[in-house]
Every structure is written in C-alpha cells, then in structure tokens.
C-alpha cells in the first residue's frame, strides 16, 4: 500500500516534471507585471527551484503535498486542496446514491435472472441490461435530459432550486456533511431534501445504468455457474429449502467474482462523474477536473489525479478485505 502510493506520486510527478520549467513557471505567476524585467523568468525559475534535478524537486513537491499544499487552483480561486474538499461532498453524494441501487438492484436482479434462466423474467431483465451495456452513458444522460427535462420538465439539472440555494448559503444553514440531501434532513428541511433528490435522479440514473447492467451480467453468469456446482446438489440433498439454497449457499459463492467487479464499478462511477456533473451542471470533483482541463490549470489537474488515485487505492483495499471476508480460502496475512 505505501509502495503503491509512492509509485503513483512518482508517475504523477514525472508528468509535472515533463512540463518543463517554463510552463510550470506560468502557474506561479499571477500577473504579467512579474515578468517585466528581462531576466525575471530565470530569476523566478531559480527562486522556485524549477531547474533543480528531478529527485530534489520530487522530494520537495512530496513534502508540500504531505503538508496539504497542493498548489494554487485557478478554477477554485484558492488552494487546490480546500477547493477539492469543498467539492468532494457533492460528488460523494452523487456516487453514494448511484452505488446503492447499482449494487443492491443489480445483485438482486442478477440472482432472479439466473434462477429463472431463459424464462420471460430473465429475458426481460437481460434486454434491459443489454441496453444499459451497449448505450454509451453520455448518450443515455443526454436522452434522459431531453425527455425528463426538455419534454416533461420533471427533473431539472443543477443542484437545488435557486431559492433553496440561497437558504443553503445563508448563515443559519448548518453545514454538517455538505451533502445537500443529508444536510437538508439534518436541518429539518424536508422540502429542500425532496428538491435536492429531484435534481439527483437523472445524474444518478445516468451514472448507474452502465455499471448496473455490468454488475447484473456478472452476477447472473456467476450465479448460473455456482448453481451447477456439486455443493448445491449436496445442500438440496440434505433437504435445505430452495430459497435458502439460492440466497445462502449459492449467493455467497457467486458474490466472490461480483465483489471485484463491484470494487471496479465504484472507481468507474467516480470516473463517470466528470461528464455527468458537466452534462447536468452540478458542482463537484468531476466538474472541477473538467474545468481544470479546459483552463490548463496544472495544479488542479494534478491534485485531482492524486485525489482519485488515493480513492482508487482505498477502494481496492476494501475489495481485498471483503474478499477475505467472503472467501475463507483467502486469508489476510
């Protein structure tokens, strides 16, 4: 784990380094005034140590990162870290709302589909999954926006209505988690909660559909394989009722491959937030990165990359641990 972190920071730093001193310098300068004198550029490069050898610069940079100094963000108009921390709760909220239906519904329907293999219900579920799997997710998002916003006007883009937005920015609003739906409940404003939820529905559906379809397919095929196993017959031969055979004996085994994919899907979902937040005009980490890319805001991009890598590493660790919990053949050292 620490090794992976070092590897990741090294890779990211070499990207910074590859930019070269001149371009990096640009990100330190806040006005053209600074470059007035002819030798100003060289002086500043010296001052910030941009011409030092790579290892020295790397260690310096790493030291800054460890102290929470990720550089200045042009997009956030403040330090990169505070800018990201401010936006992260929104993305977290979106992801949580997307993950819960993905995992629960996909596994549930995957099992149903496998148990009723080739029956009508199975065919029906499979068609739905196939559509989700084959339709590019941004196309699906735009379609949703077209139907439910433009045509029906049910679910608007954005975060909350303007009037609620003002309340949420006011002083009496308790920012506890910074996630609109949860804070709304904690502040006792059910109307804001409903409104925030209404704004979440389309992005959540867009974000979830692809991974939902994917996880469903994995669950179904894994379940079909497990149901053919000898130990399932053993369970039936002992007189275990069929629903327990499926929900306990088969499902626990079938979850082993599903777990890896579920971990991957969390990471995939986070990646998906970049375009989902953009399409549905939401504030969040994904949108932050998209904006940073258009502005060539190096430090924001690097910060985002570090941030997502960190989440990915933690995500994989969680998958490994849950693997060991489900499968006794794997034991953590």
């Amino acid at each position: 784990m620490p090794l992976i972190l070092i590897g990741v920071t090294l890779i990211i730093f070499s990207m910074i380094w590859a930019l070269g001193p001149d371009r990096l310098l640009a990100s330190y300068i806040k006005s053209p005034e600074a470059l007035k004198t002819p030798d100003a550029a060289e002086r500043l490069i010296k001052k910030y140590g941009l011409d030092e050898p790579m290892p020295v610069q790397y260690l310096k940079w790493l030291g800054n990162i460890l102290q929470g100094d990720f550089g200045y963000s042009m997009v956030g108009k403040k330090g990169v870290l505070p800018a990201m921390l401010e936006r992260f709760p929104y993305t977290l909220e979106l992801t949580i709302y997307a993950i819960i239906p993905v995992i629960l519904v996909a596994i549930w329907l995957g099992v149903v589909s496998a148990v009723h293999q080739n029956k009508f219900i199975d065919q029906f579920i499979r068609v739905f999954a196939l559509v989700g799997w084959s339709l590019p997710d941004f196309v699906f998002g735009l379609l949703l926006l077209l139907v439910f916003y433009s045509l029906l006007g049910w679910f608007p883009p954005g975060m909350v209505n303007t009037q609620f937005d003002l309340i949420m920015r006011s002083a009496e609003w308790n920012k506890i988690t910074s996630m609109p739906t949860i804070d709304a409940l904690l502040n006792g404003r059910f109307d804001i909660f409903v409104d925030a939820l209404r704004h979440l529905i389309l992005p959540v559906m867009t974000l979830a559909y692809l991974w939902w379809a994917y996880l469903l397919r994995i669950t179904r095929s894994s379940m079909l394989e497990v149901l053919r196993k000898d130990y399932i017959r053993t369970a039936r031969a002992k007189g275990v009722p069929e629903n327990i055979v499926i929900q306990k004996h088969a499902k626990k085994n079938a979850m082993i491959p599903v777990l890896t994919v579920a971990g991957g899907s969390v990471i995939g979902l986070l990646g998906g937030t970049v375009f989902v937040e953009t399409i549905f005009s939401r504030v969040g980490m994904g949108r932050f990165l998209a904006d940073a890319a258009t502005l060539l805001d190096y430090w924001s991009i690097i910060g985002g990359a570090l941030f997502f890598s960190f989440i990915m590493i933690v995500g994989n660790l969680v998958v490994d641990v849950s693997y060991a919990l489900v499968d006794p053949r794997i034991r953590l050292e």
């Binding site: 031969a237 004996h249 499968d327 006794p328």
Partner: peptide, 25 residues
Amino acid sequence: MMKIRGNDMAMIFQEPMTALNPVFT
C-alpha cells in the same frame, strides 16, 4: 420431500473436493 431428504434418505457424492460448500465451515 424436503423433509424426507437428508432425514430419511441421504446421499454421499463422488467428489469430496466439490461436494462441500467452500465458504461454510
């Protein structure tokens, strides 16, 4: 039939490697 299976009639299979469920003790 569920009450008969395992209680009045039981069965042992060929492959002890695969006939026991790997995730339960």
